[in-house]
Write a protein that binds this DNA or RNA. Structure first.
Lengths: 323, 323
DNA sequence: CTGTTAGCGCGTTCAG
DNA sequence: CTGAACGCGCTAACAG
């Protein structure tokens, strides 16, 4: 069931079978027919590993994600997969959950030639050991961009977007605007905090940090804020899921949203449309972030000498009921 | 930067380098040192493709999922990844979105020896072309089990669980219990519907079908139900996300939950804990479904002649505020 | 304990 | 237009 057998059955050489397999021109139609027939009768399936070894191209992309349970990440992955498929690539997904040894195990596939390049959606730039594993392999950062590396990036302007969200709350007349932030080792987190600080300059400020981006974390963060002597009347959360948790907490406390407490989220995931009230949020171009990441990565794979591109995609403030 | 160079630098043969690389016993400590030193100075990274070709083992598992945006699927994938990592395996994720050509492109990696086995969480048994692509490769069905194939499966007893959910609604005194179902080509969907029908025998019955499992679909389904001349006073939804959409619709209509409308979901995803009121639901052992799937798959990989195992894991009715 | 040899299955020169 | 021969980088069998 290898190419030799097909060749024997067809009465040709392996080279000819290979040519037919790869749509190589310059095979007499009659010969091609014979080969195709042999392939069919043998039920031949090419060994992709051998092909990859020979061509030193795997047509596989590694995608490193902090948590696949995060709908924002999942949405980006969908975009990645779509564009990858268009170009004949497959996806190897590493759901790191910030586990260092898991991440390095996957990154080793880069030097091992199992994947042609990597897209990271994790705070990888904080982990020097990992960037060393990537070395000069084709690399695109998605969702946050640290220009300190030989990697392209696809993001939005996190600082500006955060500032716009908080400015909006200010315009609506809210006085004490708090922020629920995540892990500030992520560049996007610190950039959004900077945007918040800028918009709140000379005003009341309060930031709470969570360990994860899951609903429960947002709920707990909101509890902390409501336990303050000076309670906020508005909250800017760094993700819609955190905002959703905060909203649940407000409901439980009997707070009217947005009258007594306004909430603005970030990301623009579908979940935000069905909360009561629906979430006002900063919508990221989720799908497009994935698509562009793949496009830039493939460019880099085809031309390893290419200089990194730092791309910022447009975002928008989506005004719904929560603020 | 291949094994030959390391061998030359260390002054040994490639075989010895290989032995050191694979922790093979029977290498003189001194020689081992020399080899390790050479590996370090060369900054040598083994070519995994070559190794995989040689050993005809890739240590990769294909995971076929209908939608990664579904938190249930994402949770299972997490379990899969954890158990895979424990055993030195990596995951190749195909987010099929029911796209036939995407699924077949990934399944071809099976015959292409790029992956050692596959776990499917999709209604693959409805698609004869795909099962043919799998052939006799190691295969585990997760979340639904069609015994008509040479594949193990890990599921819960969907019929019984659905019946328990509806029985609970009956016990609470609800009279007109409707069901929001998804795509019945999925075995689990038809099994849960059977459970619903059984519990509702001799009573009012009404089933609405959705195209997807996303919130919006649940919202729309609920709208359909509320447009009925004879409205339901309770709803059993096939997934928590659909239930969440239904809940949002109820809120928008000003219906009190659970007094005027009770809602029971299915899956037990974290989202259900933060809705108002929180969702009563059937909790599946999400993580464990993934873990066991990998375990059964690895057994099958090690012993291809193994007869399929059909495993059912325990579930539970989690009583919260929505019913 | 170590080296030599022989493939794994394929794509790709280079002749003819 | 086709075939013979080589090698991608590695592991495994067999000698020594």
């Amino acid at each position: 069931m290898s190419i030799d057998k097909v060749a024997r059955v067809a009465g040709v050489s392996t080279a000819t079978v290979s040519r037919v397999l790869n749509g190589n021109p310059g095979v007499k139609p009659l010969t091609r027919e014979k080969v195709l027939a042999a392939i069919a009768t043998c039920d031949y399936q090419p060994n992709l590993l051998a092909r990859q070894l020979r061509t030193s191209r795997s047509n596989m992309l590694l995608v490193l994600v902090s948590s696949i349970l995060n709908p924002f990440c999942a949405g980006v992955v969908r975009g990645i997969e779509e564009e990858a498929e268009k170009n004949g690539y497959h996806i190897l997904l590493c759901n790191s959950e910030s586990r260092l040894n898991r991440e390095s195990a996957y990154l080793r596939l880069l030097s091992g030639k199992v994947v042609d390049g990597v897209i990271t959606m994790d705070a990888i730039s904080c982990l020097p050991g990992l960037t060393a594993l990537i070395g000069d392999s084709p690399w695109v950062q998605c969702g946050e961009g640290d220009p300190g590396y030989n990697a392209s990036s696809v993001t939005i302007d996190n600082g500006l977007a955060a500032k716009a969200a908080v400015d909006y709350l200010v315009e609506q007349g809210y006085q004490r605007i708090a922020m629920i932030n995540g892990d500030v080792r992520y560049l996007y987190a610190s950039q959004r905090e900077a945007g918040y600080r800028e918009a709140c300059e000379g005003r009341w400020q309060q930031v709470v940090y969570t360990e994860s981006l899951e609903y429960q974390a947002g709920f707990q963060a909101m509890e902390q804020l409501l336990a303050l002597p000076d309670k906020p009347d508005a909250v800017f959360a760094i993700s819609d899921s955190l905002a959703g948790g905060a909203l649940a907490c407000a409901h439980q406390r009997g707070l009217k949203v947005p009258e007594q407490l306004a909430i603005v989220g970030f990301d623009g995931i579908p979940f935000g449309e069905i909360t009561t009230p629906p979430l006002t949020t900063i919508a990221q171009p989720i799908h497009q972030l994935g698509v562009r990441s793949v496009q830039l990565l493939l460019e880099r794979i085809d031309n390893p000498a290419m200089t990194p591109v730092y791309e910022m995609l447009p975002w928008s403030l989506v005004q719904r009921g929560s603020a």
